[in-house]
Design a protein around this nucleic acid. Sequence first.
DNA 1: CTAACTGCAAATCGTTTGCGAGCAA
DNA 2: TTGCTCGCAAACGATTTGCAGTTAG
Lengths: 151, 151
Amino acid sequence: MRKTWEKQFDYFNKRVTPHRRAIIEIFEEENRHLSAEEVYMLLKKKEEKVGIATVYRNLDLLSQMGLLHRVNFGDGKEYYEMTRVLPGEHHHHLICTKCGKVVDYSELVGEEHEFLNRLEKKLSNKYGFLTQSHQIYFYGLCEDCQLICES
Amino acid sequence: MRKTWEKQFDYFNKRVTPHRRAIIEIFEEENRHLSAEEVYMLLKKKEEKVGIATVYRNLDLLSQMGLLHRVNFGDGKEYYEMTRVLPGEHHHHLICTKCGKVVDYSELVGEEHEFLNRLEKKLSNKYGFLTQSHQIYFYGLCEDCQLICES
DNA sequence: CTAACTGCAAATCGTTTGCGAGCAA
DNA sequence: TTGCTCGCAAACGATTTGCAGTTAG
């Protein structure tokens, strides 16, 4: 049973190793953004002997192959999340500028796609830029921090 | 002649120092995103004796005060750019996933605002999140890197 | 077989911090 | 005067790298 993503490895001339399989598994199970450190911990829980450098190298590789997305919430670390192909699965992030909390957001997908597709077409024409993906970050105050500010 | 942004310093109980004045000047003159290191270099060119720590501290402060925006292009550094209040001045970024080049984008502003305002309202309702700002990042291939890939 | 992959430890580099001296209000 | 700011150097922490041994295909 060859997974759909395995052909990506052939294309990039890379090997399907147990570590790589396990990392993809972790992202499928957790279904959320993870830092390199978190992936490292979760890998070790799976009774895998692994070094942190390997985790970094593989997260980088999987991003380049398009299987993972890199996201940044301004806390000094990079995070990674599964690239979701179905429109309803793609999401963006709300980041609280006070406490740093990150909320996933996945509303308005139909309208959003229409809007972004139109934008991408314009970008191609004007800058000759070929868009592969996009990320929208909203910055503001989460529910809890709004209450603190009022008092 | 008191600048419009100086009242922000009173509100935050912060002082208007020569360094801070000079940093804001630099962003007004350059009108582009700058890393801490770049700001540091430009400050020293203005014949200012300054430490890199002060630059970091002030970039952080100016961001908190809302005068600067922090942006991240995934190259390991944080960048900063002037917060633009007029709709036509606000822009987003196209980032080449191959060479790392960043192109500023500022099209479709009217439509974009309408779209994002609607989104923000939904977010407030659903997550109780109070949006202050947003950033859209497009990732893809710039004109030059597309040519390289084809050959 | 052999080029890709790995673990380890050291190195790198952007950013933060502690502290005593200096300056804005 | 007072406490916000500063420069300096040391510390920090996330990520990268060199290298020798291992493994997927």
